[in-house]
Write a protein that binds this DNA or RNA. Structure first.
Lengths: 379, 379
DNA sequence: CACACGCCTGAATCGCCCC
DNA sequence: CGGGGCGATTCAGGCGTGT
């Protein structure tokens, strides 16, 4: 029998008509626990499934310290096939409990998100957006063999292809984003500091705790106060804590007792905000970093151009890859600037100039030009 | 018969030994045209496949398999299957022409990239990064029902799981990015203005022309000058134009005459950059190896010299055979450095110092002196 | 008490060459 | 082809300690 949303459910403080499965953590496997919930009963699902990382040996930092990798048993799968079967099972169970106008968020990395996304499409979910979480402080690539893996991907999808009535708080998102549409790339720090749950010995309670700011934007964009939010991989309960704070109901599913206990204590300490103050604020972003290579890519500087310092003591030649060279000696604008002066450091942006009929122009001027162009383009 | 790379292929201006299929556009379907190329012949593939799911009748339709779940939507399943079959076919053909150490880039949006990525994993490609192209000036979401779709996703993968020798110009990327690692999120404007190809009536020639800046970073990061770059969905030839400008060879495949003509005219107008500005910035990895014993042979270090670490916690004595010893314990500068610290590994060049009136000097500076002497001697 | 300095850490599919 | 040695490789930020 399907659970019908009652009016009382919308009122957070009315406990009388509230189902027993609401605002609590269900211990067990996500598939069986979701199967025990009434169908068509959940407004939004946020899922942070295992990423199926396939790590080789140990990885050490340049200072020889060992990287604390995610090697937990729950992230181990025998094959892509096994992972696909698991993904299919929990997505089907999730789809059953979702209301017809419900939506689902799934977060992942390049290890798993493509398989999850394809499976979602196969099962009939309809993609609304893929949203990129850009990390302000990602872990570096220690061996210098790849780009720094600086983001994770979230898929936001509706239950059905032609769903029209799903919740998207367009105006709230726009207002929160300096009155321009909220984009599909979000910038947040990773979860650390006081927000990160730790045990008595100071070790992190959960290896992949997500930042509350990320969950807050998810819930503020796609739920209304009083909505029911389900997280089938609850972990230490970030989804529940944010949902409670924002006046939404939560349903958590988790297998590990350690995580459940930590989540319950955490959520109990959360105070729900007064509905009238549930507004998002967004600070001014810092000036975007412009790689010197971008000036070449934008055509503001040509490969082969000669750069010189303000007193024309040294000249260097711009190379196509964004380095500059004096003779065979090539490096960044900063390194070469430091080297010719015999210093440890140098701001290449202000040190190097381009010679033209109008005299010497610091390349920093070109950087500002580029920023202006980007700002105009963004409007 | 596999095509073997000849020495002449590496020299851009030497046309004599160049295969007939290089630096030109092949008209036809990507699968059949790739099948006509020699295997193991391409260093990098950049692919911008179509993502509309309503493909023409030229697609091979696989045998219909039984749908076993009530939740599967047959109509979607059918079109997704057709798209998957097409994706599988061109990825297999691409994999055949790729060299063992080759890499592939595929760009797409949330409509298709998840299916493509999952298929790539199924076929044995190994993901190195997913890279997000953040658009400075994306199209707005006119209906206000979703987030502004402000990015596209690129997958960068090696041909095989354990490929170690693929090209990644780490130092060039880092130098070009203010001396910090290049991240997996790149910011570029969409292709517009003078760069955008248009016909006589001012209509854009191709609906999805990619910006040259994007291709430039792709090629500068993952290819060397003289490498062969294949684009099986050539369109108006952005890949070819950038490859030619950067001194790389290109191979284009395209079905439509209109695009081929536009691309040929476009590439003909491109001037290749001077090879001296195309040199790839290399870090210490490319420096010639200097055995520690060479410093003794050159007289830069005397047997019996005492070495110490930066904090003078340990001292070791240099022996005539190039080992260093603490008491009876003798081994390489690296092994002894690791041993005293209780670590598995240690870079002895930066760990050990020589004490003099001017203070502690790392032996790495002596190595650099030696390299400089060798460079002078070589001229 | 303010500031400088150094240590620690985060979802990681993280060598290359020679014998 | 496997094993072993050389020696290259990190960004942002929180937090504790010392001056």
């Amino acid at each position: 029998m399907a659970y019908k949303r009652s009016a009382s459910l919308k009122v957070v403080n009315c406990e009388a008509g509230k189902p027993a499965w609401l605002d609590r953590i269900h211990k067990g496997h996500c598939v069986s626990q979701m199967a025990a919930l009434p169908e068509n009963s959940v407004d939004v699902i946020f899922a942070d499934p295992p990423y199926n990382l396939q790590l080789g040996g140990d990885l050490h930092r340049p200072d020889q310290s060992k990287v604390d990798a995610v090697d937990d048993h729950w992230d181990q799968f025998e094959s892509f096939q096994a992972y696909d079967a698991f993904t299919r099972a929990w997505l089907l169970a999730a789809r059953r409990v979702l209301k017809p106008n419900g939506t689902i968020w799934v977060i992942g990395s390049y290890h798993n998100i493509f398989r999850v996304g394809a499976m979602m499409q196969d099962l009939g979910f309809w993609m609304l957006n893929d949203v990129v979480w850009r990390k302000t402080n990602p872990m570096p690539n220690f061996r210098g063999r790849r780009f720094q893996n600086a983001h994770e991907t979230m898929i936001w999808a509706s239950r059905d292809a032609n769903a029209k009535g799903y919740t998207f708080n367009y105006d709230a998102m726009k207002s929160a984003n300096d009155d321009v549409q909220m984009r599909s790339d979000w910038l947040f720090p990773i979860c650390s500091g006081g927000e990160r749950l730790k045990d008595a010995e100071g070790r992190k309670t959960h290896p992949t705790q997500k930042p509350e700011a990320l969950l807050a934007r998810v819930l503020l964009s796609s739920t209304k106060p009083g909505d029911v939010v389900l997280d089938p991989f609850f972990g230490t309960g970030t989804t529940g804590a944010v949902a409670k704070r924002l006046g939404r109901h939560y349903v958590g599913i988790e297998r590990e007792d350690v995580y459940i206990e930590a989540a319950e204590a955490r959520i109990a300490a959360v105070e729900a905000l007064d509905p009238t103050v549930l507004k998002v604020s967004a600070g001014k972003r810092a000036e975007p970093r412009i790689p010197f290579a971008s000036l070449l890519e934008a055509g503001l500087v040509q490969p082969g151009t000669e750069l010189t310092d303000a007193k024309r003591r040294w000249t260097a030649r711009v190379r196509a890859d964004g380095t500059i060279a004096i003779g065979e000696d090539a490096a960044s604008i900063h390194r070469i600037g430091a080297k010719v002066q015999g210093l440890d450091a140098c701001n290449g942006w202000t040190f190097w100039h381009i010679d033209s009929k109008k005299g010497l122009t610091p390349i920093d001027t070109l950087r500002q030009t580029m920023r202006d162009q980007m700002a105009v383009a963004a409007v």
